[in-house]
Design a protein around this nucleic acid. Structure first.
Lengths: 203, 203
DNA sequence: AGTTGACATGTCAGAAGTTACATAGTGAGG
DNA sequence: CCTCACTATGTAACTTCTGACATGTCAACT
Protein backbone atom coordinates (compact mmCIF):
# COMPACT_ATOMS: atom_id res chain seq x y z
CA UNK A 1 0.00 0.00 0.00
CA UNK A 2 1.40 3.33 -1.08
CA UNK A 3 1.94 6.17 1.36
CA UNK A 4 -0.80 8.74 1.58
CA UNK A 5 -0.20 11.14 -1.28
CA UNK A 6 -2.47 14.04 -0.34
CA UNK A 7 -5.28 14.83 2.04
CA UNK A 8 -7.57 14.86 -1.01
CA UNK A 9 -10.93 16.26 -1.91
CA UNK A 10 -12.73 15.18 1.23
CA UNK A 11 -11.06 17.89 3.31
CA UNK A 12 -10.89 20.57 0.63
CA UNK A 13 -12.95 23.65 1.43
CA UNK A 14 -14.59 25.31 -1.53
CA UNK A 15 -15.32 28.93 -2.23
CA UNK A 16 -18.85 30.14 -2.86
CA UNK A 17 -17.99 30.62 -6.52
CA UNK A 18 -16.79 27.02 -6.67
CA UNK A 19 -20.16 25.80 -5.41
CA UNK A 20 -21.96 28.10 -7.84
CA UNK A 21 -20.06 26.48 -10.71
CA UNK A 22 -20.77 23.00 -9.37
CA UNK A 23 -24.46 23.95 -9.24
CA UNK A 24 -24.35 24.97 -12.88
CA UNK A 25 -22.59 21.73 -13.80
CA UNK A 26 -25.42 19.67 -12.25
CA UNK A 27 -27.38 20.82 -15.36
CA UNK A 28 -24.82 19.01 -17.53
CA UNK A 29 -21.23 19.36 -18.75
CA UNK A 30 -20.12 22.78 -19.96
CA UNK A 31 -17.07 24.75 -21.01
CA UNK A 32 -15.72 27.71 -19.07
CA UNK A 33 -17.14 29.96 -21.74
CA UNK A 34 -20.62 28.45 -21.43
CA UNK A 35 -20.49 28.79 -17.65
CA UNK A 36 -19.56 32.45 -18.11
CA UNK A 37 -22.74 32.89 -20.20
CA UNK A 38 -24.86 30.92 -17.76
CA UNK A 39 -23.99 33.04 -14.72
CA UNK A 40 -25.93 35.82 -16.43
CA UNK A 41 -29.52 34.65 -15.92
CA UNK A 42 -31.21 33.69 -13.73
CA UNK A 43 -28.22 33.01 -11.44
CA UNK A 44 -26.77 36.39 -12.33
CA UNK A 45 -29.66 38.14 -10.59
CA UNK A 46 -28.01 37.06 -7.33
CA UNK A 47 -24.48 35.96 -8.19
CA UNK A 48 -22.08 37.12 -10.86
CA UNK A 49 -18.53 36.26 -11.92
CA UNK A 50 -16.23 37.23 -14.82
CA UNK A 51 -14.46 34.69 -16.96
CA UNK A 52 -11.17 35.77 -15.37
CA UNK A 53 -12.46 34.39 -12.09
CA UNK A 54 -14.20 31.33 -13.55
CA UNK A 55 -11.24 29.80 -15.42
CA UNK A 56 -8.89 29.70 -12.41
CA UNK A 57 -11.71 28.43 -10.19
CA UNK A 58 -12.41 25.57 -12.63
CA UNK A 59 -8.71 24.65 -12.41
CA UNK A 60 -8.98 24.55 -8.61
CA UNK A 61 -12.12 22.41 -8.77
CA UNK A 62 -10.32 20.02 -11.13
CA UNK A 63 -7.33 19.86 -8.76
CA UNK A 64 -9.68 18.97 -5.91
CA UNK A 65 -11.24 16.22 -8.03
CA UNK A 66 -14.67 17.85 -7.96
CA UNK A 67 -14.82 18.20 -11.75
CA UNK A 68 -13.35 16.29 -14.71
CA UNK A 69 -12.38 17.86 -17.99
CA UNK A 70 -11.92 16.66 -21.54
CA UNK A 71 -10.12 18.69 -24.19
CA UNK A 72 -11.23 18.94 -27.80
CA UNK A 73 -8.86 20.61 -30.27
CA UNK A 74 -10.94 23.49 -31.51
CA UNK A 75 -10.56 26.25 -34.05
CA UNK A 76 -9.09 28.87 -31.68
CA UNK A 77 -5.57 29.21 -30.31
CA UNK A 78 -6.33 26.88 -27.40
CA UNK A 79 -8.13 23.57 -26.99
CA UNK A 80 -11.74 23.72 -25.78
CA UNK A 81 -12.19 22.13 -22.34
CA UNK A 82 -15.51 20.65 -21.33
CA UNK A 83 -16.02 20.20 -17.59
CA UNK A 84 -18.31 17.73 -15.82
CA UNK A 85 -19.09 17.35 -12.13
CA UNK A 86 -17.72 14.20 -10.44
CA UNK A 87 -19.31 12.04 -7.74
CA UNK A 88 -17.13 13.67 -5.07
CA UNK A 89 -17.99 17.12 -6.44
CA UNK A 90 -21.70 16.34 -6.14
CA UNK A 91 -21.16 15.07 -2.59
CA UNK A 92 -19.33 18.30 -1.69
CA UNK A 93 -22.12 20.39 -3.23
CA UNK A 94 -24.79 18.46 -1.31
CA UNK A 95 -22.91 18.96 1.96
CA UNK A 96 -22.61 22.71 1.32
CA UNK A 97 -26.28 23.13 0.35
CA UNK A 98 -27.64 22.10 3.75
CA UNK A 99 -25.43 24.51 5.73
CA UNK A 100 -27.73 27.40 6.74
CA UNK A 101 -26.34 30.47 4.98
CA UNK A 102 -25.47 33.48 7.12
CA UNK A 103 -23.86 35.97 4.70
CA UNK A 104 -25.70 39.30 4.64
CA UNK A 105 -26.52 40.79 1.25
CA UNK A 106 -24.87 44.03 0.19
CA UNK A 107 -26.89 46.72 -1.54
CA UNK A 108 -25.43 49.95 -2.83
CA UNK A 109 -28.88 51.41 -3.55
CA UNK A 110 -29.85 51.07 0.10
CA UNK A 111 -26.53 52.49 1.24
CA UNK A 112 -27.19 55.62 -0.80
CA UNK A 113 -30.59 55.99 0.85
CA UNK A 114 -28.84 56.17 4.21
CA UNK A 115 -27.32 59.50 3.23
CA UNK A 116 -30.25 60.63 1.07
CA UNK A 117 -30.84 63.82 3.07
CA UNK A 118 -27.28 65.02 2.36
CA UNK A 119 -28.01 65.48 -1.33
CA UNK A 120 -30.36 67.78 -3.21
CA UNK A 121 -33.87 66.31 -2.67
CA UNK A 122 -34.93 66.73 -6.31
CA UNK A 123 -31.78 65.05 -7.65
CA UNK A 124 -32.09 62.27 -5.11
CA UNK A 125 -35.79 61.76 -5.91
CA UNK A 126 -34.80 61.40 -9.57
CA UNK A 127 -32.38 58.60 -8.63
CA UNK A 128 -35.18 56.63 -6.95
CA UNK A 129 -37.73 57.36 -9.67
CA UNK A 130 -35.21 55.95 -12.14
CA UNK A 131 -34.70 52.94 -9.89
CA UNK A 132 -38.46 52.36 -9.67
CA UNK A 133 -38.68 52.41 -13.46
CA UNK A 134 -35.80 49.99 -13.90
CA UNK A 135 -37.24 47.59 -11.33
CA UNK A 136 -40.66 47.74 -13.03
CA UNK A 137 -39.07 46.80 -16.36
CA UNK A 138 -37.11 43.95 -14.77
CA UNK A 139 -40.22 42.76 -12.95
CA UNK A 140 -42.21 42.57 -16.19
CA UNK A 141 -39.36 40.69 -17.85
CA UNK A 142 -39.02 38.22 -14.96
CA UNK A 143 -42.77 37.58 -14.89
CA UNK A 144 -42.74 36.70 -18.57
CA UNK A 145 -39.85 34.30 -17.93
CA UNK A 146 -41.82 32.75 -15.06
CA UNK A 147 -44.87 32.26 -17.31
CA UNK A 148 -42.72 30.48 -19.89
CA UNK A 149 -41.19 28.27 -17.20
CA UNK A 150 -44.60 27.36 -15.74
CA UNK A 151 -45.76 26.35 -19.20
CA UNK A 152 -42.70 24.09 -19.44
CA UNK A 153 -43.43 22.51 -16.06
CA UNK A 154 -40.35 24.00 -14.40
CA UNK A 155 -42.43 25.05 -11.39
CA UNK A 156 -42.50 21.40 -10.36
CA UNK A 157 -39.89 20.58 -7.69
CA UNK A 158 -39.10 17.32 -9.47
CA UNK A 159 -38.16 19.14 -12.69
CA UNK A 160 -34.33 19.11 -13.05
CA UNK A 161 -34.35 22.89 -13.62
CA UNK A 162 -36.72 23.74 -10.78
CA UNK A 163 -33.82 25.69 -9.27
CA UNK A 164 -33.98 28.18 -12.14
CA UNK A 165 -37.64 28.79 -11.32
CA UNK A 166 -36.93 29.16 -7.59
CA UNK A 167 -34.21 31.74 -8.23
CA UNK A 168 -36.49 33.62 -10.61
CA UNK A 169 -39.23 33.73 -7.95
CA UNK A 170 -36.78 35.38 -5.57
CA UNK A 171 -35.92 37.82 -8.36
CA UNK A 172 -39.59 38.71 -8.70
CA UNK A 173 -39.98 39.18 -4.93
CA UNK A 174 -36.86 41.34 -4.81
CA UNK A 175 -37.85 43.57 -7.69
CA UNK A 176 -41.34 44.02 -6.23
CA UNK A 177 -39.74 45.02 -2.92
CA UNK A 178 -37.33 47.44 -4.59
CA UNK A 179 -40.12 48.93 -6.71
CA UNK A 180 -42.45 49.61 -3.77
CA UNK A 181 -39.60 51.01 -1.67
CA UNK A 182 -38.14 53.23 -4.40
CA UNK A 183 -41.58 54.73 -5.17
CA UNK A 184 -42.18 55.43 -1.48
CA UNK A 185 -38.73 56.97 -1.03
CA UNK A 186 -39.07 59.12 -4.15
CA UNK A 187 -42.47 60.36 -2.90
CA UNK A 188 -40.96 61.22 0.50
CA UNK A 189 -38.10 63.17 -1.06
CA UNK A 190 -40.32 64.90 -3.62
CA UNK A 191 -43.00 66.06 -1.17
CA UNK A 192 -40.67 66.70 1.79
CA UNK A 193 -43.27 65.14 4.10
CA UNK A 194 -43.71 61.72 5.67
CA UNK A 195 -45.53 59.33 3.32
CA UNK A 196 -47.30 56.28 4.72
CA UNK A 197 -45.63 53.15 3.39
CA UNK A 198 -47.60 51.28 0.77
CA UNK A 199 -49.85 54.24 0.00
CA UNK A 200 -50.31 54.86 -3.73
CA UNK A 201 -48.37 58.06 -4.57
CA UNK A 202 -51.08 60.67 -5.14
CA UNK A 203 -49.46 62.78 -7.85
CA UNK B 1 3.04 81.06 -6.05
CA UNK B 2 4.23 77.57 -5.20
CA UNK B 3 4.26 74.78 -7.73
CA UNK B 4 1.29 72.42 -7.73
CA UNK B 5 1.97 69.87 -5.01
CA UNK B 6 -0.60 67.20 -5.77
CA UNK B 7 -3.71 66.69 -7.86
CA UNK B 8 -5.65 66.74 -4.61
CA UNK B 9 -9.02 65.64 -3.36
CA UNK B 10 -11.02 66.79 -6.37
CA UNK B 11 -9.76 63.95 -8.54
CA UNK B 12 -9.58 61.26 -5.85
CA UNK B 13 -11.95 58.36 -6.47
CA UNK B 14 -13.46 56.82 -3.38
CA UNK B 15 -14.38 53.25 -2.62
CA UNK B 16 -17.93 52.30 -1.67
CA UNK B 17 -16.78 51.74 1.89
CA UNK B 18 -15.29 55.24 1.94
CA UNK B 19 -18.67 56.72 1.00
CA UNK B 20 -20.40 54.55 3.60
CA UNK B 21 -18.10 56.01 6.26
CA UNK B 22 -18.69 59.55 5.00
CA UNK B 23 -22.44 58.87 5.22
CA UNK B 24 -22.05 57.82 8.85
CA UNK B 25 -19.98 60.92 9.58
CA UNK B 26 -22.77 63.19 8.30
CA UNK B 27 -24.51 62.19 11.58
CA UNK B 28 -21.63 63.79 13.48
CA UNK B 29 -17.98 63.15 14.37
CA UNK B 30 -17.03 59.64 15.48
CA UNK B 31 -14.04 57.44 16.23
CA UNK B 32 -13.11 54.39 14.19
CA UNK B 33 -14.45 52.24 16.97
CA UNK B 34 -17.80 54.00 17.00
CA UNK B 35 -18.07 53.68 13.22
CA UNK B 36 -17.38 49.96 13.57
CA UNK B 37 -20.35 49.74 15.97
CA UNK B 38 -22.56 51.88 13.73
CA UNK B 39 -22.13 49.72 10.63
CA UNK B 40 -24.07 47.06 12.53
CA UNK B 41 -27.61 48.53 12.38
CA UNK B 42 -29.42 49.62 10.35
CA UNK B 43 -26.64 50.09 7.77
CA UNK B 44 -25.35 46.60 8.55
CA UNK B 45 -28.52 45.08 7.10
CA UNK B 46 -27.12 46.07 3.68
CA UNK B 47 -23.44 46.90 4.18
CA UNK B 48 -20.90 45.55 6.62
CA UNK B 49 -17.20 46.13 7.32
CA UNK B 50 -14.75 44.98 9.98
CA UNK B 51 -12.58 47.33 11.94
CA UNK B 52 -9.56 46.02 10.03
CA UNK B 53 -11.05 47.56 6.92
CA UNK B 54 -12.40 50.71 8.54
CA UNK B 55 -9.16 52.01 10.12
CA UNK B 56 -7.10 51.96 6.91
CA UNK B 57 -10.03 53.45 4.98
CA UNK B 58 -10.27 56.35 7.45
CA UNK B 59 -6.56 56.98 6.90
CA UNK B 60 -7.16 57.12 3.14
CA UNK B 61 -10.10 59.49 3.58
CA UNK B 62 -7.92 61.73 5.76
CA UNK B 63 -5.15 61.67 3.13
CA UNK B 64 -7.70 62.76 0.50
CA UNK B 65 -8.84 65.62 2.74
CA UNK B 66 -12.37 64.22 3.01
CA UNK B 67 -12.18 63.88 6.79
CA UNK B 68 -10.33 65.65 9.59
CA UNK B 69 -9.18 63.99 12.78
CA UNK B 70 -8.30 65.16 16.27
CA UNK B 71 -6.41 62.97 18.72
CA UNK B 72 -7.15 62.81 22.42
CA UNK B 73 -4.71 60.94 24.64
CA UNK B 74 -6.85 58.14 26.03
CA UNK B 75 -6.36 55.39 28.55
CA UNK B 76 -5.32 52.68 26.09
CA UNK B 77 -1.97 52.13 24.37
CA UNK B 78 -2.92 54.48 21.53
CA UNK B 79 -4.51 57.91 21.31
CA UNK B 80 -8.24 58.04 20.47
CA UNK B 81 -8.90 59.67 17.08
CA UNK B 82 -12.17 61.43 16.40
CA UNK B 83 -13.00 61.94 12.73
CA UNK B 84 -15.25 64.58 11.20
CA UNK B 85 -16.35 65.03 7.59
CA UNK B 86 -14.92 68.07 5.76
CA UNK B 87 -16.59 70.36 3.21
CA UNK B 88 -14.80 68.58 0.35
CA UNK B 89 -15.79 65.22 1.83
CA UNK B 90 -19.43 66.27 1.87
CA UNK B 91 -19.13 67.50 -1.73
CA UNK B 92 -17.65 64.15 -2.79
CA UNK B 93 -20.44 62.28 -0.99
CA UNK B 94 -23.11 64.42 -2.66
CA UNK B 95 -21.60 63.78 -6.09
CA UNK B 96 -21.53 60.02 -5.47
CA UNK B 97 -25.12 59.87 -4.15
CA UNK B 98 -26.71 61.01 -7.41
CA UNK B 99 -24.88 58.44 -9.58
CA UNK B 100 -27.49 55.73 -10.33
CA UNK B 101 -26.15 52.55 -8.71
CA UNK B 102 -25.68 49.49 -10.91
CA UNK B 103 -24.05 46.87 -8.66
CA UNK B 104 -26.14 43.69 -8.43
CA UNK B 105 -26.75 42.26 -4.98
CA UNK B 106 -25.28 38.89 -4.08
CA UNK B 107 -27.30 36.37 -2.14
CA UNK B 108 -25.99 33.04 -0.98
CA UNK B 109 -29.44 31.85 0.09
CA UNK B 110 -30.74 32.26 -3.45
CA UNK B 111 -27.66 30.60 -4.91
CA UNK B 112 -28.36 27.53 -2.79
CA UNK B 113 -31.92 27.41 -4.11
CA UNK B 114 -30.52 27.12 -7.63
CA UNK B 115 -29.16 23.67 -6.78
CA UNK B 116 -31.95 22.75 -4.34
CA UNK B 117 -32.96 19.63 -6.26
CA UNK B 118 -29.44 18.18 -5.89
CA UNK B 119 -29.86 17.74 -2.14
CA UNK B 120 -32.17 15.61 -0.04
CA UNK B 121 -35.60 17.34 -0.24
CA UNK B 122 -36.34 16.99 3.49
CA UNK B 123 -32.95 18.40 4.51
CA UNK B 124 -33.30 21.23 2.01
CA UNK B 125 -36.84 22.02 3.16
CA UNK B 126 -35.48 22.28 6.71
CA UNK B 127 -32.97 24.89 5.53
CA UNK B 128 -35.75 27.08 4.13
CA UNK B 129 -38.08 26.53 7.09
CA UNK B 130 -35.23 27.73 9.31
CA UNK B 131 -34.71 30.71 7.01
CA UNK B 132 -38.42 31.57 7.15
CA UNK B 133 -38.28 31.52 10.94
CA UNK B 134 -35.20 33.72 11.08
CA UNK B 135 -36.68 36.24 8.65
CA UNK B 136 -39.92 36.34 10.68
CA UNK B 137 -37.95 37.15 13.84
CA UNK B 138 -35.94 39.84 12.05
CA UNK B 139 -39.12 41.28 10.55
CA UNK B 140 -40.76 41.59 13.97
CA UNK B 141 -37.63 43.26 15.32
CA UNK B 142 -37.39 45.70 12.41
CA UNK B 143 -41.05 46.62 12.71
CA UNK B 144 -40.60 47.48 16.36
CA UNK B 145 -37.62 49.67 15.43
CA UNK B 146 -39.73 51.37 12.76
CA UNK B 147 -42.50 52.09 15.29
CA UNK B 148 -39.99 53.70 17.63
CA UNK B 149 -38.56 55.78 14.81
CA UNK B 150 -42.01 56.93 13.69
CA UNK B 151 -42.76 58.02 17.25
CA UNK B 152 -39.53 60.05 17.17
CA UNK B 153 -40.44 61.70 13.86
CA UNK B 154 -37.68 59.97 11.93
CA UNK B 155 -40.12 59.11 9.14
CA UNK B 156 -40.04 62.76 8.11
CA UNK B 157 -37.65 63.40 5.17
CA UNK B 158 -36.43 66.57 6.88
CA UNK B 159 -35.31 64.68 9.98
CA UNK B 160 -31.49 64.41 9.97
CA UNK B 161 -31.73 60.65 10.55
CA UNK B 162 -34.42 59.99 7.96
CA UNK B 163 -31.83 57.82 6.18
CA UNK B 164 -31.88 55.34 9.07
CA UNK B 165 -35.65 55.01 8.60
CA UNK B 166 -35.33 54.61 4.82
CA UNK B 167 -32.78 51.82 5.20
CA UNK B 168 -34.94 50.12 7.81
CA UNK B 169 -37.94 50.23 5.43
CA UNK B 170 -35.86 48.39 2.83
CA UNK B 171 -34.92 45.89 5.53
CA UNK B 172 -38.60 45.28 6.23
CA UNK B 173 -39.39 44.86 2.52
CA UNK B 174 -36.46 42.46 2.10
CA UNK B 175 -37.34 40.30 5.07
CA UNK B 176 -40.97 40.11 3.96
CA UNK B 177 -39.79 39.01 0.52
CA UNK B 178 -37.43 36.41 1.96
CA UNK B 179 -40.09 35.14 4.34
CA UNK B 180 -42.74 34.63 1.63
CA UNK B 181 -40.22 33.05 -0.72
CA UNK B 182 -38.70 30.71 1.87
CA UNK B 183 -42.14 29.47 2.97
CA UNK B 184 -43.14 28.84 -0.63
CA UNK B 185 -39.88 27.04 -1.41
CA UNK B 186 -40.08 24.91 1.73
CA UNK B 187 -43.67 23.93 0.82
CA UNK B 188 -42.56 22.97 -2.70
CA UNK B 189 -39.71 20.81 -1.43
CA UNK B 190 -41.79 19.25 1.34
CA UNK B 191 -44.78 18.30 -0.83
CA UNK B 192 -42.82 17.50 -3.99
CA UNK B 193 -45.50 19.24 -6.03
CA UNK B 194 -45.85 22.71 -7.59
CA UNK B 195 -47.24 25.20 -5.07
CA UNK B 196 -48.90 28.39 -6.29
CA UNK B 197 -46.88 31.37 -5.16
CA UNK B 198 -48.44 33.38 -2.34
CA UNK B 199 -50.83 30.58 -1.37
CA UNK B 200 -50.95 30.02 2.38
CA UNK B 201 -49.20 26.68 3.07
CA UNK B 202 -52.08 24.37 4.04
CA UNK B 203 -50.39 22.13 6.57
C1' DA C 1 -7.10 37.99 43.05
C1' DG C 2 -8.52 36.51 38.63
C1' DT C 3 -11.50 36.51 34.65
C1' DT C 4 -14.52 38.42 31.36
C1' DG C 5 -16.16 41.98 28.38
C1' DA C 6 -16.19 46.59 26.59
C1' DC C 7 -13.18 50.24 24.89
C1' DA C 8 -9.69 51.40 21.37
C1' DT C 9 -6.37 51.16 17.31
C1' DG C 10 -3.66 49.08 14.40
C1' DT C 11 -0.99 45.37 11.01
C1' DC C 12 -0.54 41.32 8.05
C1' DA C 13 -1.46 37.32 5.15
C1' DG C 14 -4.45 35.61 2.15
C1' DA C 15 -8.94 35.03 -0.35
C1' DA C 16 -12.20 36.99 -3.50
C1' DG C 17 -13.32 39.91 -7.19
C1' DT C 18 -12.53 43.52 -11.08
C1' DT C 19 -10.16 45.45 -15.04
C1' DA C 20 -7.16 45.22 -18.49
C1' DC C 21 -3.93 42.60 -21.43
C1' DA C 22 -3.15 38.82 -24.72
C1' DT C 23 -4.18 35.54 -28.48
C1' DA C 24 -6.62 33.57 -32.41
C1' DG C 25 -10.31 31.40 -35.53
C1' DT C 26 -15.12 31.91 -37.82
C1' DG C 27 -19.00 34.09 -39.97
C1' DA C 28 -21.95 38.13 -41.12
C1' DG C 29 -22.56 42.70 -42.88
C1' DG C 30 -20.92 46.83 -45.08
C1' DC D 1 -11.58 43.61 -48.29
C1' DC D 2 -12.37 45.26 -43.82
C1' DT D 3 -14.47 45.53 -39.56
C1' DC D 4 -17.27 43.80 -36.05
C1' DA D 5 -19.15 40.44 -33.03
C1' DC D 6 -18.95 35.94 -31.19
C1' DT D 7 -16.41 31.89 -29.79
C1' DA D 8 -12.75 30.41 -26.54
C1' DT D 9 -9.05 30.40 -22.83
C1' DG D 10 -5.90 32.21 -20.21
C1' DT D 11 -2.63 35.78 -17.22
C1' DA D 12 -1.38 39.95 -14.48
C1' DA D 13 -2.09 43.86 -11.67
C1' DC D 14 -4.89 45.72 -8.60
C1' DT D 15 -8.68 46.60 -5.17
C1' DT D 16 -11.61 44.85 -1.64
C1' DC D 17 -12.67 42.08 2.18
C1' DT D 18 -11.93 38.53 5.91
C1' DG D 19 -9.61 36.43 9.80
C1' DA D 20 -5.98 36.29 12.75
C1' DC D 21 -2.39 38.56 15.38
C1' DA D 22 -1.04 42.30 18.54
C1' DT D 23 -1.38 45.64 22.50
C1' DG D 24 -3.19 47.79 26.56
C1' DT D 25 -6.78 50.09 30.04
C1' DC D 26 -10.82 50.00 32.88
C1' DA D 27 -15.02 48.36 35.25
C1' DA D 28 -17.89 44.60 36.75
C1' DC D 29 -18.38 40.20 38.36
C1' DT D 30 -16.73 35.87 40.79
Amino acid sequence: MAAVESDDSATTAGSTLGYALLSLLTRGPATGYQLTQQVKAPLGHFWTARHSQIYPELARLAAAGWVDSVEQAGPGPRAKKTYAITASGLAALRAWLVIPPTAQPRSEITLKAYAATSADPAAMAAVYIDLAERSARLLAEYEQDAERMRAAGQDDPVHPRFGNFAVLMMGIESQRAVHRWARWLAACLRTGHPVAYGEPPAD
